[in-house]
């Protein structure tokens, strides 16, 4: 698949176009430009490394939202076997923006859930742009409780701009759906491993993100509000999103520094979409290691560890009154 280039990747795009042109012009003419092509390809890699070595937080957000970025179902396909998607919250309807089901990870039975974005216009609408409604969160909770009942570990994949802000969502109590997941996940008696694969958008992301181990892909983001939302409120203009992205410390590197996540999985050069199999293999290794670590832990210890982990979040000081 031909990559889609983001604005800041234009120098790479131009170079890659030149390589493409050279390949085309040499085809069937007997002129050997292989050496030149090889040289340009090396240059393209170098340029990509240079550009991706110094991405601003706002540019990282663009990569996290890249239209070719692997989505939850791609991870399912590559990392899991025996997938059976299970549908519906048993009360209202199924929510295609939240996929849930049972599967096997390296042969071991588990429950998998994640937000799912759409690839083309039609699927984007069908998936509601990855913004779950209350029934999506309730389906996720139903599956998490199923996991607990049958002693299955849970893998969650976070990729959402946020929970859907619509009239129906409010009528069906979006707040409660999110709150209930936070409440129940805090005391779920089975291991939970969460991976932020793209956008970790606010409460809508956290509602499947309370976990024993949290991984972020190196070009994913995680924040309390979108950079655009923060900019329009605090910076008085959505156009100042790059500044808001900077100020909110939304990158994996920043969040690891603040000990708000556990580890970063490095993406291939140019982002996860440039080499999907490599992305999958890197993540598989880390998921496997994290799972092995949690699997060995007695359940009471795991529950207490999760509680202490949640209690540790926060930056404050104690100053006698």
């Amino acid at each position: 698949m031909k990559p889609t280039y983001l604005d800041f990747e234009q120098p790479i795009a131009e170079l890659d176009q030149r390589i493409e042109d050279l390949r085309f012009s040499t085809a069937g003419r007997g002129v050997d430009l292989n050496e030149e092509i090889t040289r340009l390809e090396a240059k393209s890699r170098e340029l990509t490394a240079q550009i991706f070595g110094q991405l601003t937080p706002w540019q990282v957000a663009q990569v996290a939202r890249h239209p070719q970025r692997p989505y939850s179902l791609d991870y399912l396909q590559h990392l899991f076997t025996d997938w059976e998607e299970l549908h519906g919250d048993r009360h209202f309807r199924d929510d295609p923006s939240m996929i849930c089901g049972v599967a096997r990870f390296e042969g071991r039975a588990c429950v998998v859930l994640g937000q799912q974005k759409g690839r083309d216009a039609k699927e984007r609408v069908y998936r509601n742009f990855g913004m779950p409604k209350p029934e999506g969160y309730r389906k996720a909770l139903r599956l998490m409780q199923l996991a607990e009942r049958f002693h299955l570990p849970i893998f969650t994949f976070i990729d959402t701009p946020g929970a859907y802000p619509g009239i129906g969502a409010e009528e069906r109590n979006q707040s409660e759906a999110i709150a209930r997941n936070l409440f129940e996940m805090a005391r779920l008696r089975t291991p939970v491993i969460a991976t932020v694969i793209g956008e970790g958008g606010s409460g809508g992301a956290l509602a499947i993100g309370v976990a024993d181990h949290v991984i972020m892909l190196s070009n994913s983001i995680y924040s309390v509000i979108s950079p655009e939302g923060c900019a329009s409120i605090l910076f008085k203009s959505a156009a100042r999103a790059p500044e808001a992205a900077e100020a909110m410390k939304i990158t994996a590197q920043d969040l690891l520094g603040h000990k708000l996540i556990d580890e970063i999985v490095a993406e291939p050069l140019g982002g996860a979409h440039r080499d999907v199999p490599a992305t999958m293999e890197s993540l598989r290794l880390r998921l496997s290691a994290a799972f092995e670590g949690l699997r060995a832990m007695p359940m009471t210890q795991l529950a207490e560890r999760r509680h202490q982990r949640l209690m540790s979040f926060g930056a404050f000081e104690l100053v006698p009154a």
């Binding site: 999110i178 709150a179 936070l182 409440f183 129940e184 996940m185 805090a186 005391r187 606010s202 409460g203 956290l206 993100g209 309370v210 995680y222 924040s223 309390v224 509000i225 923060c230 409120i233 605090l234 909110m248 410390k249 939304i250 969040l255 603040h258 708000l260 999760r306 509680h307 949640l310 209690m311 979040f313 926060g314 930056a315």
Partner: peptide, 23 residues
């Protein structure tokens, strides 16, 4: 709602307070 100036620290207070209520 959340205090944007504390970004993810703020978001995680949602999980922290909910966990305390679960206990």
């Amino acid at each position: 709602g959340a205090r944007m100036q504390e970004s993810l620290f703020s978001l995680f207070q949602m999980a922290k307070t909910s966990a305390a209520l679960a206990k």
